[in-house]
Write a protein that binds this DNA or RNA. Structure first.
Length: 512
DNA sequence: TTCCGACAGTGGGGTCGCAAT
DNA sequence: ATTGCGACCCCACTATCGGAA
């Protein structure tokens, strides 16, 4: 199949807003793909490369290349070239990658170049990624959508399921069962603004501490242990102490879900930055492990001794977990019967925060494990802090925010009467706010370099954030975690904005 | 008819490893 | 030795579609 066809379909998908139409367009393309093209066409139309990320970003892409006049590239050509590109490493590799990308782009028409650019940068922006591709695949093969979705979650890969499905038809879905050693997409949580709201929605539930670490899925089959992240990367080699802990457990074959986190000598959780840095260390694991040892803390079990527990209610899964994993290696929790016991849950949240953790997750006791879904049966609750900050500048947005000033530069007042930038945010704005702030900030503009519009520091905005973290980038030595706009405070003047001093005082555990 | 669940988009900061400078 | 880039951890929030209620 020609790449040209994919580029055309992608454009058409982007141009339609109806999801049903997007699905139909993808299904038609999938039906027409030859068997050898399927493992390429499906990920491409889901906005990903079958090779995963291959070390090509904006810099490596380099300058635009004159497009070819006539389409000639096949998808298999492109795939072969990108596989070659992914292999390039060592000195001179960046230039070589740039050369290979240039060669590929030069063989592509304008439409194809735009499509490839999206694929290589991971930003196809056609309003359809995995979910729509899965639905399209179901439609193309006549398999029930729910069955295809489930198979993809269990396989952890759309591509694998697509190949099997197109080769052997709907019966192939039977093959995708929960298997120890094959990671499944983890279940995710929604947010609730308070414990009361969460308990109100869920009724009887478990309220568990939420640890600020790295999600981990632990597979043990006898003496073999494998560890996977939320996106199913294999991180076994980086966390030997987690492997050792898994081997200490009583069961022989199981899949556990939990969090990896580092505790200091006093048993307090280290900052997310420290834990994440440790988990990211690959070159000298032994040294990293001595400096920042990590522990697994589990909250769910998906499989024990060959039994698939995914469809069991959480209460039953947890009973299995308690049999398998000793209490210190499980998250702390409390059971709440319903809204009458909201107070218990609130007390538990307060205790959890007191122990230095992030917040809590309320979990319905009768819900199954919805692999790969952001189920409404898990609700996280974290304390939210707010600040009044001054807008220093704003950046021109992209995509649907093109022509709008989007990303705000935020500052707090300093002791000497100046302003210290604390970070940026693009979150929390409605379309109406975007329109309003674009207009207002343009009135205050003193400079526009085409990317950043600098303004007179007169506008005050109320910002919500989850916490403070150390920063080498910003002048106060700290930055806000997950900052988002709540509202503009036109009733306030810059002199009324919060100061760095009060911010630091509110987070004594963070040292700039 | 209205409500709400699921998705995609729009980007944020930090850290590590590697290549370039 | 330092700097810059890309990958990958963490993530919030809004708009929209389309099925559920």
């Amino acid at each position: 199949m020609l790449l040209h066809r994919l580029a055309r379909v992608s454009q058409e998908v982007a141009a339609t807003s109806a999801r049903s139409r997007k699905t139909a367009l993808l299904a038609e393309l999938f039906r027409d793909a030859e068997a050898e093209d399927v493992p390429i066409v499906i990920p491409y139309l889901a906005g990903r490369l079958p090779q995963g990320r291959i070390g090509v970003g904006w810099k490596v892409l380099g300058r635009p290349v004159a497009p070819a006049g006539e389409p000639s590239l096949t998808v298999r050509d492109v795939d072969a070239r990108l596989s070659q590109l992914a292999q390039v490493s060592g000195p001179g590799s960046q230039a070589e990658r740039t050369r290979l990308v240039g060669e590929l782009m030069g063989a592509a028409t304008g439409d194809e170049q735009r499509f490839l650019l999206g694929l290589l940068t991971g930003e196809v922006r056609q309003g359809a990624l995995d979910a729509v591709a899965v639905e399209g695949l179901a439609q193309a093969t006549g398999a029930p959508g729910a069955d295809v979705r489930r198979a993809v979650m269990l396989a952890g890969s759309l591509q694998t399921v697509a190949e099997a499905l197109l080769a052997d038809g709907p019966a192939a879905l039977e093959r995708f069962r929960l298997t120890v050693g094959r990671p499944v997409l983890p279940m995710l949580a929604h947010s609730a603004s308070s414990v009361a709201e969460a308990v109100d929605k869920l009724g009887a539930c478990a309220v568990e501490e939420k640890l600020d670490g790295i999600r981990v899925q632990v597979h043990r089959d006898g003496g073999t242990v494998r560890l996977y992240t939320r996106t199913l990367d294999d991180i076994t080699d980086r966390l030997p102490e987690v492997t050792a802990a898994a081997l200490e457990l009583r069961g022989e074959r199981f899949i556990l879900d939990g969090e990896v986190i580092s505790f200091d000598a006093d048993g307090r959780p280290r900052s997310f930055q420290e834990t994440a840095g440790r988990v990211g260390s690959r070159t000298d694991v032994a040294t990293a492990a001595r400096a920042v040892p990590v522990s697994p803390v589990f909250f769910d079990v998906l499989s024990v001794d060959g039994h698939d527990l995914l469809d069991l209610p959480f209460a039953e899964r947890h009973a299995e977990l308690a049999r398998l994993v000793p209490e210190p290696m499980r998250v702390r929790r409390t059971l709440v019967s319903g809204p009458d016991e909201t107070h218990t849950a609130e007390q538990f949240l307060a205790d959890t925060i007191g122990r230095g953790h992030e917040g809590v997750v309320a979990k319905s006791l009768d819900a199954p494990y919805s692999a790969g879904r952001r189920g409404a049966s898990w609700l996280k609750v974290k304390p939210v802090h707010t600040l009044d900050l001054v807008v220093l500048a704003a950046e021109w947005g992209h995509g649907r925010r093109t022509g709008k000033l989007s990303n705000l530069h935020l500052a707090a007042r300093t002791a000497d009467g100046g302003l210290a930038m604390l970070g940026k945010t693009f979150k929390g704005m409605t379309d109406a706010m975007l329109t309003w702030q674009t207009e207002r900030l343009r009135q205050l503009a003193v400079d526009d370099d085409g990317h950043v519009v600098t303004v007179r520091p007169e506008l005050v905005v109320e910002i919500a954030y989850d916490g403070l973290q150390r920063s080498t980038r910003y002048p106060a030595g700290v930055t806000l975690r997950f900052a988002r706009v709540i509202r503009y405070r036109e009733d306030k003047r810059p002199e009324d904005a919060d100061t760095v001093e009060t911010l630091l005082a509110a987070h004594p555990e963070v040292k700039p």
